[in-house]
């Protein structure tokens, strides 16, 4: 078991080292997220004021778009340098590679959300610090669920044609439950009179989705990545 986590740790460290040296994915994805939020602002601000209760939706959609971009770029990097084969040839459990990749992408996404949340709070007057702990848990749970499916699909799509367009097409319908739970839970926290019981309920549901998505992904990763 410790070998499993060691491999996962090494894969994650490798991804982060490459990223720290170039900052390519982080910088482009953060800026992409900012532009997405701005696009929404131009669409949703009427007479100088934001339409009610849009902050959670914008936050989650911007996160999902950014995650899709980061997923695509991370695996594109492996493909361009032909390092996928090296990864797959490594004498280790395939699911360990998956866990390592997933952890790396989650850290990237967390960094993006670190910029995204205050920006949405600022532009849409959302009280993001009122229940910061719960908001953090919701974002963590939602990001895990989204990236658990996303990492599997992006890895599967490595060898496919038109992978850029196929990733969102496959990923978005599949992560509808995560989006619903995330947006509803965040909305319960950010509304004028926060409904903590409701937020707690959606958080629990997110946790259940995460467990099943991760288990299913670990279960299918091995056969789909084997020729």
């Amino acid at each position: 078991m410790s070998a499993f986590f060691r491999v996962a740790w090494i894969v994650m460290k490798k991804d982060l080292t490459v990223e720290v040296r170039s900052l390519e994915i982080v910088s482009t994805t953060v800026f992409f997220a900012v532009t997405v939020v701005l696009m929404f602002s131009f669409g949703l601000v009427v007479e100088g004021r934001a339409v009610r209760d849009v902050a959670p939706a914008i936050l989650w959609i911007a996160s999902a778009f950014s995650a899709t971009l980061a997923l695509g770029r991370t695996f594109e990097r492996e493909r361009l340098n032909d390092t996928v084969l090296a990864l797959l040839l490594a004498p280790s459990d395939r699911p360990a590679l998956y866990v390592g990749k997933l952890a790396g992408i989650l850290l990237l996404l967390a960094l993006v959300e670190l910029f995204l949340v205050p920006l949405v709070g600022l532009l849409f007057n959302a009280p993001i610090f009122a229940h910061a702990g719960r908001l953090f848990l919701l974002l963590a749970g939602g990001s895990l669920g989204f990236c658990a499916v996303g990492t599997l699909f992006a890895a599967m799509l490595l060898r496919a044609r038109s992978r850029d367009v196929l990733l969102p097409i496959m990923l978005y319908p599949m992560t509808v439950p995560v989006m619903i739970a995330g947006v509803r839970g965040t909305a319960a926290l950010l509304q004028p009179a926060p409904d903590l019981a409701m937020a707690q309920f959606w958080l629990g549901l997110l946790g259940a989705f995460d467990v099943v998505f991760v288990v299913l992904a670990l279960w299918t990763f091995e056969p789909v990545m084997t020729d």
């Binding site: 499916v149 599997l152 699909f153 599967m156 799509l157 060898r159 496919a160 044609r161 038109s162 196929l166 496959m170 599949m174 509808v176 439950p177 619903i180 739970a181 549901l205 989705f209 099943v212 299913l216 299918t220 056969p223 789909v224």
Partner: peptide
């Protein structure tokens, strides 16, 4: 449009889709 290898990919996706229906339903 997936090209070669899309049979395994598709299988992975169909399995997810089948289980996911329950979640969509619940959520």
């Amino acid at each position: 449009y997936g090209g070669p290898g899309s049979d395994k990919l598709g299988a992975g996706m169909a399995i997810f889709a089948m289980f996911n229906v329950v979640f969509v339903w619940v959520s």
